[in-house]
Design a protein around this nucleic acid. Structure first.
Length: 412
RNA sequence: CGGGGAUUGGCGCAGUGGUAGCGCGCACGGUUCGGGACCGUGAGGUCGGCAGUUCGAAUCUGCCAUCCCCGACCA
C-alpha cells in the first residue's frame, strides 16, 4: 500500500514536456504526458505510481460493489493448459486471438483470454451439491488478447486489467435474477467513478448466442457505434441494431440517436451451454444431476481509467473525479525559502490529517508547477506564496472550477 | 491481414552523398520566483537492424523489425 502523501520531487514518473507523437487518443496522450503510464509495445502499457493509484481506486470501487452482491475474490492462473479450452472447442475458435504457444516440453499452453473454462474447472472440482449454490467468484487480473490492431491507448490493448465475475446458479431464473443484480451493481460502480453509462443490448460473439448487455460511455473517443433513444431507456449496439438514426424508439417513440461509445463493461448469460460441454453439474434435491447455469460479467479496469480521461479533461489536462484521483490535493509552493518553510509545515499538517496530498516541492518556476498541476488534474490545487502568506492563507482552486478562494492556514 | 505514413541523444525535431546538429530535459555554478524564466559550463547519439551501391551512406537500393493511421477483425 502506498502512502497517502508524496513529495513530487521523489515521485517516479514525472510529467513530460511534449505529448508523445506516436499516440493520437486523448487518454494515451494525457496519461503518458502526465506520467501515469508508460508504453511498452503496441497495445501494452506499464502503470507508473500515479496511474497505479488510480487503478487501485477503481479496483476498490469495483471490489466494494461486487462484494456487496456476494462476490468472493479469487485469483486464477494466467497460464492455462490447452486441454481445458478444448473441452468447449474454444482453443480452436480463439486461434489468432488468444496467445497460444508451446512450453519447452512441447506442451500447448495459452495466456488467459477470459476465464470461463478455468473457473468452471475449479468450481467443478469443489462443488457438487445444490446446497453449495449459488456461488459468485471474481478476480481482478490481466487479460491477454492478440489484437490484430491495438489502438486508442488503453481502450483497446493486448494486455489489460479486467475484473471478471462468474455466477454459478441452479436455474435460468436464478441466473436472470442475478444478471439484473449485477447490472445494477455495474451501473453504481461506474457512477461512482464518474462514468455515465448507457445500458446497451449487444451480440455475444464467441461467448454466447444469447444477447448480452454492454455498458457504454458516450464519447467520440469510443470505438463502438450504438443507436440509443434520446430518453435513455433504449440502446442497441450497431452490430445487432434494428433501429436507425432519426428513427423511433420501440419503447417510447422517442428519437433514436447514433453515438460513439466505449464499452467499459459487458455482461453475458451462458446459461447451461458451457456446463453441458464441460460436464459441469450439481446434484439437486431429488438426487439428480443438473447443469449449473453460468453468467459471466466483465468490467475493464484500465479501460475505465482511459475512458475517465476521455470524458473528464480540458485543453490543459485531466480533471479526475475525486473518487478515482490519485491524490486529493496538489500542494504547490511558489517563492523562496520562507514560502518553502510554510508550505512544508502545511504539508506536514495534511500528512498528519491523513489527507492524500501530492506536494510539488521542486525548485521550478511557477509556470512549470501550475501547468503540471493542470495536467495531472488532482481535484484541488493549493498554492502557497508570498502573496497568500500575507493573508496567512493558502490559495485553493478546484481543478473543475475557475473560482479561487483563500483558506486561512490556521483553519487547516 | 490489405492500404498509407514514420523510425536521428531521455523527449520533440532539423539535416537528401563528404563522416551529425538544434530546442527541451539532464549535471554543475550563479541570477530569478504567480502561468512551461535567464546566463555560463558540461555530459549524452557508430542516425531501428542486416545486406548492397560508392573512394565515401543518416542521406541511394533491397530485405527485415518496430510504431502510428484507415480498413478488415473485435471474442
Amino acid at each position: 500500500m502506498q502512502g497517502t502523501q508524496t513529495r513530487y520531487s521523489q515521485l517516479f514518473g514525472k510529467t513530460l514536456r511534449n505529448f508523445p507523437t506516436d499516440e493520437t487518443s486523448k487518454n494515451a496522450k494525457f496519461l503518458i504526458k502526465a506520467g501515469f503510464i508508460n508504453k511498452r509495445i503496441a497495445g501494452v502499457y506499464e502503470i507508473l505510481p500515479l496511474g497505479k493509484r488510480v487503478v487501485s481506486k477503481i479496483e476498490n470501487i469495483v471490489r466494494e460493489e461486487i462484494n456487496a452482491i456476494g462476490g468472493q475474490e479469487v485469483s486464477m492462473s494466467v497460464l492455462q493448459p490447452k486441454e481445458l479450452w478444448s473441452e468447449t472447442d474454444r482453443w480452436e475458435k480463439l486461434k489468432g486471438a488468444m496467445y497460444q504457444f508451446k512450453d519447452s516440453s512441447g506442451k500447448d499452453v495459452g495466456l488467459g483470454f477470459t476465464h470461463e473454462e478455468p473457473m468452471i474447472s475449479m468450481v467443478r472440482e469443489r462443488i457438487s451439491s445444490y446446497k453449495d449454490l449459488p456461488i459468485y467468484l471474481y478476480q481482478i487480473q490481466s487479460k491477454f488478447r492478440d489484437e490484430p490492431r491495438p489502438r486508442s491507448g488503453l481502450i483497446r490493448g493486448r494486455e489489460f486489467l479486467m475484473k471478471d465475475l462468474y455466477s454459478f446458479t441452479t436455474s435460468k431464473e436464478e441466473l436472470d435474477k442475478y444478471y439484473e443484480i449485477v447490472a445494477k451493481a455495474y451501473k453504481k460502480a461506474f457512477d461512482r467513478m464518474g462514468l455515465d453509462t448507457v445500458y446497451t443490448e449487444a451480440a455475444g460473439g464467441v461467448f454466447t448466442n444469447e444477447n448480452t448487455h454492454e455498458f457504454q460511455v458516450l464519447t467520440d473517443g469510443g470505438e463502438d457505434t450504438i443507436f440509443h433513444c434520446e430518453n435513455g431507456d433504449f440502446s442497441e449496439n450497431k452490430e445487432i441494431a434494428k433501429v436507425k438514426e432519426g428513427g423511433k424508439c420501440p419503447k417510447d417513440g422517442g428519437k433514436i440517436k447514433e453515438s460513439r461509445g466505449v464499452e467499459v463493461g459487458n455482461i453475458f448469460r451462458f446459461g447451461d451451454v458451457m456446463s453441458k460441454k464441460m460436464n459441469f453439474n450439481f446434484k439437486d434435491k431429488d438426487g439428480k444431476d443438473k447443469p449449473i447455469f453460468l453468467g459471466s460479467y466483465g468490467l475493464g479496469i484500465t479501460r475505465s481509467m482511459a475512458t475517465i480521461v476521455e470524458v473528464h479533461s480540458d485543453d490543459a489536462g485531466i480533471i479526475w473525479p475525486e473518487t478515482v484521483a490519485p491524490y486529493k490535493i496538489h500542494l504547490i509552493n511558489l517563492g523562496g525559502e520562507k514560502v518553502r518553510k510554510e508550505s512544508d509545515s502545511i504539508f506536514d499538517k495534511l500528512c498528519n490529517d491523513q489527507v492524500e496530498v501530492l506536494y510539488d516541492d521542486r525548485e521550478e518556476s511557477a509556470g512549470v508547477k501550475l501547468a503540471d498541476a493542470d495536467l495531472i488534474g488532482l481535484p484541488e490545487r493549493w498554492v502557497v506564496s508570498e502573496k497568500t502568506l500575507k493573508e496567512d492563507s493558502v490559495e485553493v482552486k478546484k481543478r473543475s472550477e475557475k473560482d479561487i478562494r483563500l483558506e486561512k492556514i490556521s483553519s487547516i
